[in-house]
Amino acid sequence: MSTKSTGGVRWLTPDEERAWRAFRRVMVAVQTGTARDLAAIGLSEADYEVLSTLSERPAHTSTLGEQADKMGWSRSRLSRHAARMETRGLLRREPDPSDGRGCLLVLTSEGLDALANAAPAHVESVRRHFIDRLAPRDLAAVEQLARRLAEP
């Protein structure tokens, strides 16, 4: 494919395309591996993200909107997921006194126990699929790139 700009499209150069495809392959490989390992202990990636975020919040509580923004999800998608987690006893939803339409997500003791039980396996999974495959200088470069890519 031509890399010339045609019709306002700046096509990727061969180097850019290789970098993009390599980035996508790495993201898929790491995410697939850690998701599979979490599933083996009964949690989804989204479950773990919600539980770990709530565990770090004051009173183990977050607004649904804050959590949805953090995960890059819509409020309705997270609300449906939170309902499933609530059914499993991992969290409870409470009315948000500052937002009549919103709700608070509150980590339950069962959710905290599930997180505590899953954390060692999750950390080992992250090490196996990501950390241990990179040299310290590579980790520093990944962190630098991630910061740059996360900038607006």
Rank of each mutant, 00 (worst) to 15 (best):
D96A: 12
D96G: 10
R77P: 01
A82W: 01
S79G: 14
C103H: 14
R77W: 09
R75W: 07
D96Y: 09
W73D: 05
L78T: 05
G72E: 08
S79P: 01
R80I: 10
R77F: 07
D69C: 00
S79V: 01
R93L: 14
M71P: 07
G72K: 01
R80A: 15
C103D: 12
P97T: 09
R88M: 00
R80M: 12
G100K: 14
H81K: 14
S76N: 13
E94H: 03
R84E: 09
L91Y: 01
R101C: 07
C103A: 15
S98N: 15
G100C: 07
R88N: 05
P95T: 12
D96C: 09
R77K: 10
T87D: 12
P95C: 09
S98R: 15
E94I: 01
E94P: 01
D96E: 15
P95L: 14
H81V: 12
P97W: 09
P95I: 10
Q67D: 08
S79I: 03
C103F: 12
L91D: 03
M71I: 13
G102F: 08
R84Y: 02
L78Y: 06
R93P: 10
L91G: 04
R80N: 14
H81C: 08
L78R: 04
R88W: 00
T87I: 06
A83G: 08
R77N: 11
T87M: 06
R84S: 12
R77G: 11
E86L: 00
G89M: 02
E86W: 00
M71H: 05
G89T: 02
R84K: 15
E86H: 04
P97C: 08
A82L: 09
A68K: 07
S79N: 12
L91R: 06
P97Y: 08
L78K: 05
D69G: 05
D96H: 10
L91Q: 03
D96L: 10
C103N: 14
S98Y: 13
W73P: 02
D99Y: 13
M71R: 10
S79A: 15
G72A: 04
R92Q: 11
H81I: 11
S76L: 13
L90P: 01
